[in-house]
């Protein structure tokens, strides 16, 4: 698997408003019709304030692939995307039961397993949820970039703490003078 393609669809819960436009864009791009239940990304709202959108996390050793009795699911080692051979899929839903992220759905009319393919199969060939998300809450990031970002944030927080410690006494001095 190439480093370049170890990517994840990342949703920022601070930016996500739960508007479901990703679902509309996804189903329309894949099916040519709007039907939120056939979206490969699904909005979740936990009252009162949590909003998020969940899709395939491209597991390294995907349980859906392992469990499929029809052997109709396969992971593309180059892109990480898990493909479903719809000719073989009989809709048994074993994959749905084992997916720890709830990222697989059963198509409402075809009754086949559907999950995120990063819009490979669509005319646009790039993730439509990212393109249509009004809040820019969704992005496609290499796994390495994610860990780099996390490290960076932690270091910045640490530096801030150090700065705070060194600056605060000065502030007090100023206040005393005033």
């Amino acid at each position: 698997m190439s480093v370049k393609y170890q990517q994840l669809l990342v949703v920022d819960p601070a930016k996500c408003t739960g508007c479901e436009i990703c679902e509309a864009a996804c189903s329309f791009a894949h099916e040519g019709k709007f039907m939120a239940l056939n979206s490969r990304i699904q909005r979740i709202r936990i009252e009162p304030v949590i909003n998020y959108a969940m899709s395939c996390q491209f597991c390294t050793d995907p349980p859906c692939v392992a469990v499929c009795p029809q052997k109709c699911m396969a992971k593309d080692e180059r892109t990480g995307v898990i493909h479903v051979d719809e000719d073989k899929c009989d809709g048994c839903s074993f994959c749905i039961r084992v997916c720890p992220f709830g990222a697989i759905s059963l198509h409402t009319t075809r009754k086949k397993a559907i999950l995120c393919d990063l819009c490979e199969s669509t005319e646009e060939r790039e993730p439509q949820c990212i393109k249509y998300c009004p809040k820019e809450a969704i992005s496609l990031k290499p796994v390495n970039a994610l860990s780099q970002e996390a490290r960076r944030e932690q270091v910045l927080a640490l530096i801030k703490g150090i700065e705070k410690e060194t600056k605060e006494p000065q502030k007090e001095e100023g206040a005393a003078k005033a």
Partner: peptide
């Protein structure tokens, strides 16, 4: 504490 949206509202 949070801004939330209706369905299909940007």
């Amino acid at each position: 504490i949070k801004k939330a949206a209706c369905s299909c509202c940007p």
